[in-house]
Design a protein around this nucleic acid. Structure first.
Lengths: 156, 156
DNA sequence: CCTACTTTCTACAGCGACTGTAGAAGCAAG
DNA sequence: CTTGCTTCTACAGTCGCTGTAGAAAGTAGG
């Protein structure tokens, strides 16, 4: 199974053609050999690598971190401490994000459940937003802003 | 208290000067009158409006939705159904996001807890990523990709 | 008045991870 | 040959800002 086209690689990995090219540009994939007419020709190993990337992306890792994980994967003798540490840091970020979203969830719940659906002059939603008394806005969680796009991938 | 400078408005609302200008550009704020030398002069009502925006942003509403909420706020007789519906949709998005992040959290937990810290050849983290057997990657939650930046604001 | 510092102004580039567009070329089938 | 799909490059757009550059205007102290 040599000579896999970019379209075929996309089908096998579940990553779009344009995204594959983007990963190459960002250094996550080596520049592959080209056909006479200039088309990218991939091998099975590269498609494997794409699977690794997809899985890591689905877990919300950033491309920069994925590059590091790929590098670690390539050195079979090295300590796995960096990979472990990276994953743990990411887990912390995910948890912080969940906590922050829980706070939002609660305030949003209070907002919509308290609305009696008459008109905007008495709308709880508008009222809540207009009233900037202290609420989550004043202690905006310890979220570092790191984790943002996890899980937002389309189902293809 | 007429003639509030942009810097003063920023201080009072907790929104940065550059962000206020950005909101104006995006149509969330009306273009304010200018001083002789061309500087923006705000009034108390606009600072109130900024407070509304900040609160809504802290709750994770998108600027486009905030513009709609602001418009609704401005028509005291209108039905609050659109605002209510918007808030409910947003709450659903937040919940979906939490669910997706919970799935990530669990897989990340399995990953880091199973790692025995020897070397990358046996690292559970690397292994898990390399093995693209079915997992969350294959049923990537019903997250629409809508909600992403909520709560990621700095503590200023 | 002069200097130094701060604020404000405009306009544009950059972030992250893509997605979409435009226009050209290659390739396979009818 | 034509049609239609794939691939190519290069660049703009998404979202909600943030940062930069360079200029002008304001404020405080000497």
């Amino acid at each position: 199974m040599r000579e896999i086209s970019i379209g075929e690689a996309a089908r096998q990995s579940g990553i779009k053609v344009t995204t594959i090219r983007y990963y190459e540009e960002r250094g996550l994939l080596p520049a592959p050999p080209r056909s006479d007419s200039g088309r990218r020709m991939y091998d099975a190993a590269t498609v494997e690598r794409l699977g690794f990337i997809r899985h890591a992306r689905d877990l919300g890792f950033r491309l920069e971190d994925i590059a590091e994980l790929l590098a670690l994967q390539g050195q079979p003798g090295a300590s796995c401490a960096p990979a472990d540490s990276l994953a743990r840091r990411h887990l912390s970020a995910v948890r912080a994000r969940i906590a922050a979203l829980h706070a939002l969830e609660m305030e949003l719940e209070r907002m919509v459940s308290g609305c009696d659906h008459t008109d905007t002059a008495h709308c709880r939603v508008i009222e809540t937003l207009s009233d900037h008394a202290r609420c989550i806005a004043d202690h905006p969680a310890g979220v570092t802003g790191e984790l943002d796009t996890a899980g937002a991938r389309g189902a293809g």
